[in-house]
């Protein structure tokens, strides 16, 4: 792997105003380019918080974050990074209900790809890659959970990110859909050399990753 990691967390802590006790304390983590990492931990242990800090949706209370040479990116930097270099996949899919599958995939490209025909073509291509070409004009509520998550994955890949952060991506899915989604993530991961961080409850998934980390009492180990 490369000498400098893509993303480094150095003694990162997070505490909310209430309760005062730290959700994360002195977390040490580095993600290399192309690495596949699983993060497990009990519910409420701070897994989502950690992912949000890794993409700047939430600020750390202390510690340093370095993304590809940028130390502690500012709000603007994070917007830029989320737009072009970090993809996010959530347990609840987080598709916009009023937009079709295709439009949801196009959404992150607005302002990045200026040609609308090119946006559409790229979105169609992504939809095809997740095997849902026939769902292009469907709204999220017209699709199954597994299909929605595949659309969400296509959306997260819209601007070809370097790292994909997935927060319990199969948490809301039956085992068959879950398997499909995981296959898809694995395939994308293998093909594009992306880094992949998956928060999961599933120990089976965790065992197939390069590294499996666990959060207990705010400590990552």
């Amino acid at each position: 792997m490369t000498a400098t990691p893509l993303l480094t967390l150095d003694r990162v802590s997070k505490r909310y105003a209430s309760p005062q006790q730290a959700v994360l304390s002195d977390v040490q983590l580095s993600v290399d380019a192309g690495e596949l990492i699983a993060i497990t931990g009990p519910s409420g242990s701070g897994k989502s918080t950690l992912l949000y800090i890794m993409c700047g949706l939430e600020d750390a209370s202390s510690g340093d974050i370095v993304f590809d040479g940028i130390t502690n990116p500012c709000r603007r930097d994070w917007v830029h990074l989320r737009a072009r270099r970090i993809g996010l996949v959530f347990q609840a899919f987080n598709l916009l209900a009023q937009l079709t599958a295709l439009e949801n995939i196009e959404l992150p490209m607005l302002g990045i790809i200026n040609d609308s025909a090119e946006r559409k073509e790229k979105a169609e291509h992504l939809l095809e890659q997740v095997g849902l070409s026939n769902r292009a004009t469907h709204l999220p509520q017209e699709m199954s959970g597994g299909e929605q998550q595949r659309v969400a994955i296509a959306r997260s890949l819209a601007n070809s990110p370097d790292i994909l952060l997935c927060d319990e991506p199969t948490g809301n899915l039956d085992s068959k859909s879950a398997a499909q989604v995981l296959d898809l993530l694995n395939e994308r991961y293998n093909r594009q050399g992306m880094s992949l961080v998956i928060v999961t409850h599933n120990s089976e998934i965790a065992s197939t990753c390069d590294r499996s980390l666990r959060i207990v009492d705010g400590k990552l180990s």
């Binding site: 993409c55 949706l57 709000r75 603007r76 917007v79 830029h80 990074l81 989320r82 737009a83 072009r84 970090i86 996010l88 959530f90 987080n94 916009l96 959404l107 992150p108 607005l110 302002g111 990045i112 959306r155 997260s156 819209a158 601007n159």
Partner: peptide, 15 residues
Amino acid sequence: WEIGVLSSIGWGDGR
């Protein structure tokens, strides 16, 4: 929530 989602996919304040 929707605005949070837009933020998460890289929409900045201006957008």
